[in-house]
Amino acid sequence: MLELRLVQGSLLKKVLEAIKDLVTDANFDCSTSGFSLQAMDSSHVALVALLLRSDGFEHFRCDRSLSMGMNLNHVSKLLKCASNDDIITIKADDDADTVTFMFESPRQDKIADFEMKLMDIKSEHLGIPEAEYQSIVKMPSQEFARICKDLSSIGDTVVISVTKEGVKFSTRGDIGSANIVCRQNSTVDKPEEATTIQMKEPVSLTFALRYMNSFTKATPLSSSVSISMSSDLPVVVEYKIAEMGYLRYYLAPKIED
């Protein structure tokens, strides 16, 4: 038996909007530690990893570990039927081939339930070791989204370079080139508006902007984003989900032929 009650149901709506364009079908894994997902995009160059810890749910019952295969477009359609302030409960029996999403209005005067068929999805699970990154940039998530959007009107790839002067996002295309430099500004009043750079070594990597733009769909989840880079690893773009966990995107770099 699985029963997960999430008071801030809008979080789940935002998570689905943030991953459904990157991944079509995925297994949601549920265990006593929480609700998680790991899935690669169809090209096998980007990966999304979600964790919603059990203690972030108002009620979390998971009698035995379950993996529930779902089409993310279908889940997204279904969650669009929930209002932003609805409480969402996910229910499934241990051997069931369906999952039920229940939406309760905050005043408890409207209760809707939607049953969805589960899918059998064979997905490759990747072992991602904890790593020390050469550079970690933390910046406002809206600023990062704006930069990715602006650069993609000029080029297809972005070079992200971190030095002690700041982080530089560069692109070039048929019409010309662009560079955007963000400097550290940790003295701003609100911490979520700060750009901070932890640099052990300077690093410069090239990525496809199409994927970066797709990652920025997670912007509504968090006011800040962290970008962790090492020259020998995929970049990690992480959006923290308040009090509950994270949504991380991994993207393999492009290298010069």
């Binding site: 690669m40 096998h44 160059v45 990747l126 690893l233 995929p234 991994y250 492009k254 290298i255 010069e256």
Partner: peptide, 14 residues
């Protein structure tokens, strides 16, 4: 010319 690396180059399949 840049070529895209696959994730499997970095992470092992479990």
């Amino acid at each position: 010319i840049f070529i895209q690396v696959y994730l499997a180059v970095y992470f092992a399949t479990l």
